[in-house]
């Protein structure tokens, strides 16, 4: 088990390094010069060469690219994410302010996807080929294929514009009002959650069906267990093993959705900050956002591997 986890950890770090190179390159390839952008905003575009050179030196973009990369990595490791070109704020502090909001969004959507995905998948498998199963299949495919923004528009129209059940957008901090917070987050988390739920439901169904056909399920019935006991004690755990991997992959998928959802619902989280940074060509922020997202996805997948090893005792031997 230890060597298995160590191996997964090394893989994650290797991936992270490749991702860092990629992100660094992307932030430089984006069209437009960030310093020009700042000057446009503050000096109405009129500037002499001295000012430009001064700014370039200040942000370290006068150095050769490899040096820039090394400096960036070094600073990142010591927690210095640089300074936003657009606002002059420390990127690390900008992050810390928005992190709780995004975390809440993710937790909420994870709860929705698990709740909907698992219950629909289990019902579909247990009542396979029933009318309910077909209905849920259609639902899962819809959840998977409807774009986030379209689902958002429809729900805002139904729940806010027409019936005024939920606020159409905005964010209320948890510390200000708990119900206000939950109401504000209900729709965005649900929309993000349904994306993952469809995928999870499909995988839970097929995985559970294949487990229910195995010999050891017959053994369990022969022992006198009821259908429910067989499901809970014998079928669910092995059925979860392939699903954990999918749940991990879904996370990356959901992250992409969160950029759109935060923008749509005016939620002051990391996604919105990232989108704004891209529009403003604010590359220290872009780099840091992308990198944090990558770290998160890798961390979740590492956790999935840990869970996998915990669920499947055979993993310990295989590695």
């Amino acid at each position: 088990m230890k060597s298995y986890l160590l191996k997964r950890l090394l893989y994650s770090l290797l991936t992270l390094w490749l991702v860092s190179l990629f992100i660094f390159a992307i932030a430089r390839i984006l069209p437009g010069d960030p310093v020009q952008g700042v000057l446009m905003a503050s000096h109405m575009g009129i500037a002499d060469n001295n000012l430009i050179e001064g700014l370039r030196a200040k942000f370290g973009i006068d150095q050769p690219l490899p040096i820039q990369y090394l400096v960036w990595v070094k600073n990142f490791i010591i927690g210095d994410f640089g300074v936003s070109i657009a606002s002059g704020e420390k990127v690390f502090e900008m992050f810390m302010k928005r992190l709780p909001v995004t975390l809440e969004l993710f937790m909420g959507s994870a709860i929705w996807s698990m709740l909907i995905g698992f219950s629909c998948g289990i019902i579909s498998a247990v009542r396979r080929n029933s009318f309910l199963d077909h209905l849920l299949t259609v639902g899962a495919v819809l959840g998977l294929s409807i774009p986030v923004f379209w689902e958002g528009i429809v729900l805002i129209y139904l729940l806010s514009v027409m019936t005024h059940i939920l606020p159409p957008s905005g964010y209320v901090p948890f510390t200000e009002s708990i119900t206000g917070n939950l109401l504000a987050m209900a729709m965005p988390t649900f929309i993000m959650g349904t994306q993952g739920a469809g995928l999870i439901a499909r995988y839970v169904r097929s995985s559970l069906l294949s487990v229910l056909g195995q010999d050891f399920i017959r053994t369990a019935y022969a022992k006198g267990l009821s259908e429910r006991q067989v499901l809970i004690r014998h079928a669910l755990k092995p059925a979860m093993i392939p699903v954990t991997t999918v749940a991990g992959l879904t996370f990356g998928y959901v992250t992409a959705g969160s950029f759109i959802v935060e923008y749509m619902f005016a939620i002051p989280g990391l996604g919105r900050m990232g989108v704004n940074a891209i529009f403003a060509n604010d590359f220290p922020v872009i780099q840091a956002t992308l990198f944090i997202v990558a770290i998160n996805i890798l961390a979740v997948n590492f956790l999935v591997d840990v869970l996998y090893g915990y669920l499947d005792p055979r993993v310990k031997v295989r590695s």
Binding site: F216, R218, G224, L225, H234, I241, R314
Partner: peptide, 22 residues
């Protein structure tokens, strides 16, 4: 259910697959 496993029990052919692996 009260008979299965209590009054009548069964041993299956393939012990490699008849036990729950997890």
């Amino acid at each position: 259910l009260s008979i299965r496993g209590d009054q009548i029990a069964m041993i299956f052919q393939d012990p490699m697959t008849a036990l729950n692996p997890v």
